[in-house]
Simulated assay, not measured.
Amino acid sequence: MSKSFEDLEVWKKACRQALVIYKTLKETKDYGLKNQMERSAVSVPSNIAEGQERDTKPDFIRFLRIAKGSNGELRTQLYLATKLEIISTEQSNELINENKQISKMLQGLINSVELQNG
């Protein structure tokens, strides 16, 4: 495992995703969806960090899976926010593409950690 979660590219990318979600939804008046999207976005890097800090391979994998689930939840909310015209189709496409990259990175990290000895 990495020395620190801060070294993980997927954690960095997930933090950037959360910041973009907050900035994108700053003026949104749909507080229910806004709150849920912000919570999902923050959950992704938070769970990566928590899993890494627990310092056991099974815990790290479990929290990476939780992060991946939160990432999927956020992607669903992005689709809904687009249909509700809270965010533009252009913004949504960019955010969804980034989100899908994060999901692939999380799966790759899960696979890598599962293959490690010890």
Rank of each mutant, 00 (worst) to 15 (best):
M1C: 04
K3Q: 04
E6L: 14
E6S: 08
L8D: 05
E9M: 02
E9F: 09
W11I: 02
W11T: 00
K13G: 00
K13V: 03
C15N: 12
R16D: 15
R16E: 15
A18Q: 10
L19T: 07
V20S: 05
V20G: 03
I21E: 04
I21S: 01
I21H: 09
K23W: 01
K23A: 11
K26H: 07
Y31W: 06
G32E: 12
N35E: 15
R39S: 12
R39C: 09
S40D: 14
V42K: 11
V42D: 14
S43Q: 04
P45I: 10
P45N: 06
I48E: 10
G51L: 10
G51P: 10
G51Q: 08
R54H: 08
D55W: 03
K57L: 06
I61L: 08
R62A: 02
F63G: 13
R65N: 13
I66R: 00
I66H: 02
K68W: 09
G69K: 05
G69F: 01
G72S: 14
E73V: 03
R75C: 08
T76K: 06
T76Y: 12
T76N: 12
Q77H: 15
Q77E: 15
Y79L: 13
Y79S: 01
L80S: 07
A81V: 07
T82H: 07
T82L: 01
E85T: 13
S88I: 04
T89S: 11
T89K: 12
T89R: 08
E90M: 01
Q91W: 02
Q91H: 05
S92C: 11
S92L: 02
S92W: 00
E94G: 01
N97H: 08
E98H: 02
I102P: 03
L106E: 03
G108P: 06
L109K: 10
I110H: 04
N111V: 02
N111D: 14
S112M: 09
L115K: 15
Q116E: 14
G118P: 02
G118K: 06
